[in-house]
Design a protein around this nucleic acid. Sequence first.
DNA 1: GACGAATTGGACAAGGCTGTCTAAAAAAAT
DNA 2: ATTTTTTTAGACAGCCTTGTCCAATTCGTC
Lengths: 222, 222
Amino acid sequence: MKPQTVPDILPPRGQMAKRLSMLDAGARVFCSEGFAGANIDLIAAEAGVSRQTVYNNFGDKEKLFAAVVGEITDRCTAGAFAVLGTFPDHPKHLETDLTDFAIRFIRNCICDRDGKFLRKLIHMEGERHPELFASWRVGGPGKVWSALAARFARLAFAGFLDIDDPDVAARQFFSLIFTDLQIPALFGEVLSDKEVARSARIAVVTFLRAYGRREAGGETPG
Amino acid sequence: MKPQTVPDILPPRGQMAKRLSMLDAGARVFCSEGFAGANIDLIAAEAGVSRQTVYNNFGDKEKLFAAVVGEITDRCTAGAFAVLGTFPDHPKHLETDLTDFAIRFIRNCICDRDGKFLRKLIHMEGERHPELFASWRVGGPGKVWSALAARFARLAFAGFLDIDDPDVAARQFFSLIFTDLQIPALFGEVLSDKEVARSARIAVVTFLRAYGRREAGGETPG
DNA sequence: GACGAATTGGACAAGGCTGTCTAAAAAAAT
DNA sequence: ATTTTTTTAGACAGCCTTGTCCAATTCGTC
């Protein structure tokens, strides 16, 4: 063990720190001003670097934007899979565990900074430059849905749920989760933990009304 | 009957035609280029008027944008209420009638031109200029949800549904309807009638699994 | 400490856009 | 038919932005 050189990228220092700083500032400015309205000088200032450094690192505005999109989509996909790893495969109390899972998903994938950025980036440039998001579409939502569907299928197999089509159930689960978050999210409103918890709770209640086991009566098993 | 003077505004002619044309072109250009990227010359050209006419009618770019937002939000709200008027208050076959209603809603409020414009406008400027959408928020989704909740409550009272909170059920109904449309809509993809019908169908099936009457068992009553 | 790479701040040209102004033309109203 | 209003095309100033270039400076590393 020679702690002299640190080959790992644990503390992003030096060039990497600047690069991340620029991507971060780029995400902020692009999202709030739009691509055309975004000002490279402002991005450089917010990143704490000179404009020339931005051009040195990314070439031009469009390439910077593409890099920002790549960074955000990667982070969002990683975040979604991280939360997916906390799915309650062996639930003690199904409703509670699913609700907690939903809360984690909302907090880490929808209401967080990257989630907001991703939504805005897609809305801004999804139609004009779909190729920027092509890899995200197949590696992000597509895979996340499949993975969640597999978890639901396992729960159904174990007798916790009554599901015909796990893929449909997975997509509808997300949709129900987002029900009351969509409009506030559009206007950048920050949701309190209480609101998030309430949204998750009523979503899971409805989800279980639709997909919970029929024979075993609802909330009072014992 | 003196058809010499036409006080009504039935055929939008003259100034009104130009105004609508400008609002229309403005919506197209603002939505595809963003506010900062939108070019007044291009809007004027697409509207078939001179740039000066745009300035004469709306003052400046921001006022034109506000007028576009007002026009689109008004149209979307009106469209939503028009579809709401076709709700099956006395369903012959609940699932079929609700599915048809959902299809009408998708076609006329989500997948139509104004629906697309509204989503983009909100995403672009909702956070920066929430006041532009304040009246829409209370008069649009808020009222539509309430109205749909009232219809569901009536169906529940008539014994067709089993609903605890009609407001929640109404919002979740919309949410389920949009499940499979969100991402394609983001990328401007046009949905076939088949896809729309399928989305509506599986949404209504799940909705009825959650909120259909309990005692009258679903598909396998025996 | 010394070297090379990266960074900085500023100046700079080229281009685009907004918003105003004007005189001519067209449209509408009387 | 005439008068009034609206529309048009074009020119124009002012401003902002992108992207490049360059000399001076700082940073990371040996």
